[in-house]
Design a binder for these strands. Structure first.
Lengths: 334, 334
DNA sequence: CCTCACAAATGAAACGTTTCACATCGGCAT
DNA sequence: ATGCCGATGTGAAACGTTTCATTTGTGAGG
């Protein structure tokens, strides 16, 4: 087995309390003994046992992060931001992938609680039940606004994003707009639609006649492409498509090209997310950018505040504002 | 503080050993007491303290994964596979992002050792020094072949990938091929070039006259696009470009279009990685697919084998073979 | 009625830390 | 010489589990 603090103490000829002090309160031990102990530690490759330490201390330097899909670049960027913030404060991040399954989510919630993580960042699945967490572990909700303000949350204003996209298309003169969305189990698609309706109403039009909702089977490029057939069938066909997600938009762009339609001349297109290749498509894609990295970073800072301040901490709801990115795909051509 | 096993024992009117048995060896305790204990556990929301457990047991159910860049979809898919395999065996994954910095890498190595993770999956940074790990923690090297076989490794045969791409282009009749690569600090770009040279030699040509290496400033789309200017300057310009990575290829495709060149008529293009949007570009991108998810999955299985079998385990080097995906961007047009 | 076997429950010891109350010691002021 | 102080070092106790040697209880077999 790997050496422990007793062994170090024995070899350095000091008591085990002293070794501990060298590790945790170096100012309490004389320079020469400190050096001696450190030398022994290096010699025998002693590594402090985190479990024992945590048991004694009562807290860990670890935070859990549960996301819906690790292979989705959106969550990945969020994780990147979280990891950066955590690492700055000496915390480790345990990344868990719920795959949007309430079972897996619950399982990870338990596992993290058992690990006594200092806090959790949770991108809630469809069926997230906060009451299942009766522990006092600090939690920050990610990518969803916490309605009851009994915990912090960091999200992006999807209604505003939908509104931006809508206003942009209306300003360009479009009178009919298709809204292509993924499954409505994902609340964001609903919010973006609501934003779009706002924009239309604000411009003095009737959302019900201007907007044509169109559901894709999933939220990937394939499903986006498949929806183009339905789009072409629409009577009084819209001149613009607002896609709830960039992947849908890519699929749409691809399928439109195959139908011989030219973006943006025949159909204008705007996506959502600003994935990193959005500017690189056949026609560079207009989109709504979300501050993904910042989302994860801010959430972690909030969590760490709650962890360190305890009582003094007050819950906050941070809502980021997305940003309209105009590229070729939505420039108005007469 | 949150309840402990004593409290459960007290409330259930049993000894603390019995509670522990309910948790770990239910077959040793009578059904009625088992139920009683479980009820109390639910009532007061008892969650076992993982640190104490690990301290006593001497081992954790956690594995560490260190990748070079969490925002890169390649590593993300690898992580996805690793997480899936780990989760199947009840292990948690701690994800760490070294950012290819030896410092951060060393820091995480230490932190994971202190956490007493059961094992580590490491995508080694430029300066990975195995001897810095003098612990007996099992390690599996990811995405790099371990030369000295003193640990397991799982990688993809980059030489074979380069060869496939080369053979494909040669078969299509190309006599001059540009090889656009990212920084050579990344060994994979070297291996892919070597594979390309093999293919050329095998076809009976001189690699030095057929192949024109071209270095991009980074391995992203922007750098790829920027390299097109240099490509256009090449005397006796190649009719095909083999990009060491799909992002480079996207940038190239974009920039070529701006120069008025048509892919594949004027220039054939093949990338590497098969990122998920590769099929969706203006011209669908031919590429070399790597089994990313499988890479992570296999590595984790190897690691878990080493963890559970201990002595009985023998180190293995798994090398996956990549796959040629032919799409429009490299179809030969006369 | 005694023994035996077996199932069920017990509680002390141990895991490796950190912390805290205490001991030691030399020097310095009185 | 005495007392006190600060700097340094000490070691027992505690953190919450699991495990193991033991005890207790119970019914069967003789």
């Amino acid at each position: 087995m790997v050496a422990n603090i007793h062994e170090v103490a024995r070899r350095a000829g000091v008591s085990l309390g002293t070794v501990s002090h060298v590790l945790n309160h170096p100012e309490l031990v004389a320079e020469t003994t400190r050096q001696r102990v450190l030398r022994v530690i290096n010699e025998i490759g002693f590594v402090r046992n985190g479990s024992a330490r945590q048991l004694r201390i009562g807290t860990t330097q670890t935070i859990g992060l549960i996301v819906l899909d690790v292979s989705n670049p959106f969550f990945t960027e969020v994780a990147h931001g979280a990891e950066a913030a955590a690492s700055e404060h000496g915390y480790l991040v345990i990344l868990c992938n719920s795959g949007n399954s309430p079972d897996k989510e619950a399982h990870y919630l338990d596992a993290l609680a058992e690990q006594r993580v200092a806090g959790m960042l949770i991108v809630p699945s469809v069926a997230y039940a906060p009451q299942s967490l009766r522990r006092e572990t600090p939690v920050v909700l990610l990518d969803r606004l916490s309605k009851d303000a009994n915990c912090c949350s960091v999200s992006v204003d999807d209604v505003a994003g939908g509104e931006m996209a809508g206003k942009h298309l209306l300003d360009a003169g479009h009178q009919r707009i298709a809204y292509l969305h993924g499954p409505f189990t994902n609340a964001q698609y609903i919010d973006r639609l609501e934003g779009l309706r706002h924009a239309v109403a604000q411009a003095g039009h009737d959302p019900n006649t201007v907007i044509v909702p169109l559901a894709a089977a999933a939220d990937n490029a394939q499903a986006g492409g498949a929806s183009v057939a339905a789009f072409c069938q629409i009577p009084d066909r819209p001149t613009a498509i607002f896609c709830g997600n960039d992947y849908l938009a890519v699929g749409v762009m691809h399928a439109l090209a195959e139908c011989g339609m030219v973006v943006p001349r025949d159909v204008a297109l705007i996506g959502y997310d600003d994935i990193d290749l959005a500017a690189m498509f056949a026609v560079p894609l207009s989109t709504i950018r979300q501050p993904k990295y910042e989302l994860g970073y801010a959430a972690t800072e909030l969590l760490l505040d709650e962890i360190t301040q305890k009582e003094a901490h007050t819950h906050r709801q941070i809502v980021f504002r997305p940003e309209l990115i105009v590229r070729e795909s939505s420039r108005w051509h007469r």
